[in-house]
Design a protein around this nucleic acid. Structure first.
Lengths: 131, 131
DNA sequence: AGTAGATATAAACATTCATTTATATGTTGA
DNA sequence: TCAACATATAAATGAATGTTTATATCTACT
């Protein structure tokens, strides 16, 4: 076997790096490393099944902690812990009302993201299973 | 202060649980716990900034490991490790060609997810900063 | 066969994270 | 003030994760 294997090229046209854009510049679809870092941070919040269940729930309308606990059958401290994480990533808004504290989804686009991820995951698995 | 605080209701119409659907049933937008679990698994793969950088890169066309290493300025074992994780979650496809191994994005919808996450993160931060 | 290059794997480490158990804080009504 | 309820916090623990350093595997050319 005496084949030639040329070194893969370097077409330098993927994503503009932060340094290429002056401060305040606006691009429709720039994805600097900072943007990716923030996206990764949000993704980390979405990387737990229980948190996704909570997000879906509060995405349908604000819910008290106890309502979430009962609906999802999780322990109260566990739900509180996850809500804290979701608040830290700004994915939920909080509202106190008497003794109850209501949590609500902060941005509806997250539901679309979850649905897309679910579909993609299903498709990837079906392809893999079919081959 | 002598207000009344009614117990929050339980409107039972959020998401159908897996048990509510016979096996093989098809719904346009069902999100069972299994689906959420798989979505969470994908999200975990997206939860690292370096992995997102790799995904964006191979989303533009297949790339060899060394090309990724040079472009992103990461160590070779680190890139290999992340590629392994991305392969495990089926987000990339692999192709050997001589001594080179090429990785390619398996599903373009992931790019949309990343872009949406980036936008949402930016918006959430701006809202929080503005208030 | 041997050498060089491309990529993967292993070991080690510090950090983060999900969960449980136990306790504290805060609010309301008696 | 006290009791009951809603929620948060703390401590503890085991498991997973990102990164580095070192080494192994695989392929191609001489």
């Amino acid at each position: 076997m005496t084949e030639k294997h040329p070194i893969p090229g370097d077409p330098e046209h993927i994503v503009k790096s932060s340094a290429d854009l002056a401060d305040g510049d606006q691009m429709q679809d720039q994805l600097t490393d900072d943007h990716l870092q923030r996206a990764a941070f949000l993704a980390k919040s979405l990387s737990d099944g229980n948190r996704l269940r909570i997000l879906l729930l509060v995405g349908d309308g604000r819910k008290s902690v106890s309502a979430i606990v009962e609906k999802l059958e999780l322990s109260q401290p566990l739900v509180s812990h996850h809500l804290r994480e979701l608040k830290r990533s700004l994915l939920v808004k909080v509202e106190r009302e008497g003794p109850f504290i209501y949590y609500e989804l902060a941005d509806a686009r997250i539901l679309g993201v979850v649905r897309t991820l679910s579909k993609v995951a299903t498709d990837l698995l079906s392809v893999r299973t079919t081959f």
